[in-house]
């Protein structure tokens, strides 16, 4: 956690970047839709902030491993892979906290929703964070070059954040192109959140399947991360 605090203290621009990224799309989509998509975009911003936070982990871990040999030092210490992953994930989350705080404030002031929808949105957002973090950590242990890491981040970001309809309802995508969006787990999280907030109206079975897919992908990625991560050989 102190890594992020020290980084933001020494390079305030890092905090500004994490702050404006989730808000940029929100502002553009709200303006373009003349305010109609404000609610969807606020929830989408939350999903994106947590997903991006998990994905950023991959780049930072490769940077620390390759450029500073930090991972070698931590691997040879009593720190376990889980503690390292958890610590770095929390550290990444800290960068995004100011942006998340603004989005939460906007949601509480402008959107009216009850306890159950709040729990559903929270669940979907947390699952996306876990999924992106597990994926980021696993990829980081296999990558040994920062240039490769940037390319991987680009591809994964497209899959997890560009293709899925996070800032607008999935119904805006005409069939059959809509099916392509279902390749990304973020789509399922967005669909759950949008249904909970009342922006889309799908049969309950569709949302149940969304939950199953989202939880399933998260569990599978966590298991693969635990098994296939090249943390240390011993």
């Amino acid at each position: 956690m102190v890594n992020a605090i020290y980084a933001m203290k020494n390079y305030p621009i890092m905090m500004v970047n994490a702050f404006v990224s989730p808000l940029a799309f929100l502002i553009v989509l709200t303006l373009v839709s003349r305010g109609a998509l404000f609610g969807v975009a606020v929830i989408g911003g939350l999903i994106m902030a947590l997903t991006s936070s998990g994905l950023s982990l991959q780049g930072d871990l490769v940077h620390f491993k390759v450029d500073f040999k930090l991972q070698d030092m931590v691997v040879s210490s009593p720190t376990t892979a889980f503690i390292y992953l958890f610590g770095m994930a929390i550290s990444e989350l800290i960068y995004y906290l100011p942006g998340i705080a603004v989005l939460l404030a906007m949601a509480f002031i402008n959107l009216k929703f009850g306890l159950f929808p709040t729990l559903q949105v929270t669940g979907a957002v947390i699952l996306m964070f876990v999924l992106a973090t597990a994926l980021g950590f696993m990829l980081s242990t296999h990558i040994s070059d920062i240039m490769e890491s940037w390319a991987v981040t680009g591809v994964v970001s497209i899959l997890l954040s560009t293709i899925p309809p996070v800032y607008y309802p999935i119904t805006y995508i005409p069939l059959p192109y809509r099916y392509a969006a279902y390749l990304s787990p973020t789509t399922y999280a967005a669909q759950i959140a949008q249904q909970a907030m009342g922006y889309i109206h799908f049969p309950q079975v569709t949302i149940d399947i969304d939950w199953i897919v989202l939880i399933g992908v998260s569990v599978v990625l966590l298991l693969i991360s635990a098994k296939k991560t090249r943390w240390r050989e011993i």
């Binding site: 102190v2 890594n3 020290y6 980084a7 020494n10 390079y11 620390f64 450029d67 500073f68 040999k69 930090l70 070698d72 030092m73 931590v74 210490s77 009593p78 720190t79 503690i83 390292y84 610590g87």
Partner: peptide, 23 residues
């Protein structure tokens, strides 16, 4: 480790504190 470098944006004090927290 060989070729280890301290994290550029940290100070020596922060580097040591961070390393001890990891331990």
């Amino acid at each position: 480790p060989q070729e280890a470098r301290p994290i550029q944006w940290m100070t020596p004090r922060q580097t040591i504190i961070s390393s001890l927290l990891w331990r």
